[in-house]
Design a protein around this nucleic acid. Structure first.
Ligand SMILES: [Zn+2]
Ligand SMILES: [Zn+2]
Ligand SMILES: [Zn+2]
Ligand SMILES: [Zn+2]
Lengths: 135, 135
DNA sequence: TCAGGATTGACAATCATTCTCATCTGGAAT
DNA sequence: ATTCCAGATGAGAATGATTGTCAATCCTGA
């Protein structure tokens, strides 16, 4: 019996490509696009296919290892945050500097609004943008 | 220098195309993509170029006449809401049914979080998704 | 009425993201 | 160590939403 019923997700083998990607992401604090990360890998000497970068970012995101958000023009950007806990972001639209924030009150508010309207399976998107002190 | 509240804004001439688009939007309550709206116009007999639909939606959005948000896959969807006041949305991911909501506490929280971190020119994005009662 | 800028539309061009599929590789079994 | 094979990769094609082009057309103010 090689089947494991407790397995939470698809098998995921370690590869040099994903390791390099994870490394680059760990070394960065801003939200970057798949293309940005691909370029960063290139300049570091790690050759990784663009499709592979996309695939791994998706995998990491669905595993909760990275956070994703959409820029104003719809581009997906990724960031490996300091915590796996649910949280949100305060992002500088000039330099990309990002602060991880949380707000129990907001979480409650969102849940309550949904409940009051009979909605279930609730999720939410909350991001704050601004210009940080260095501008 | 972007638009201020006292700015008269760019001249905007009335056209049959924009009128038709506004009409269709006023008759709809869900968030729809530019392509959806273009199709809807077609089936109504109003011939409007796709590019024109995109241009007008952008104009209407920047005029604050319609709200825009991004679906999970990055597609922009538009909706003409019942109020011009700042508000957010509770959207059913099954049928698109949308409820306009507001939360003074959340607005304050966002502003405070930003201020506490020295961010200025603050804006935020808040959307709640769920499954409504009819599912 | 008339000129000139705003608007439109058909279609090309972008461009991020996904798909294809032949090839490669990690690791479990032998 | 060698074999086996499903997961993983990569090069490039394909997709699809959005934007750019530019000549023709429409408003509007003089
Ligand atoms: Zn985060
Ligand atoms: Zn939250
Ligand atoms: Zn709205
Ligand atoms: Zn708000």
């Amino acid at each position: 019996m090689s089947s494991s019923t407790t397995d939470s997700g698809p098998t995921r083998r370690p590869t040099r490509q994903r390791a390099a990607l994870a490394e680059v992401m760990a070394a960065t604090s801003e939200f970057l696009s798949a293309q940005d990360l691909h370029a960063k890998l290139q300049s570091r000497g790690d050759s990784v296919g663009l499709a592979t970068v996309y695939r791994n970012l998706q995998a990491m995101a669905s595993d909760g290892d990275v956070d994703v958000l959409r820029t104003d023009d719809g581009e997906a950007v990724y960031r490996s945050c300091g915590t796996a806990e649910h949280h949100h972001h305060l992002v500088c639209r000039e330099c990309g500097r990002t602060v991880e924030v949380d707000g129990p009150a907001v979480e409650k508010w969102a849940a309550e609004v949904a409940r009051a309207n009979g909605f279930t399976d609730v999720t939410h998107t909350i991001e704050i943008f601004g210009t940080c002190t260095s501008h």
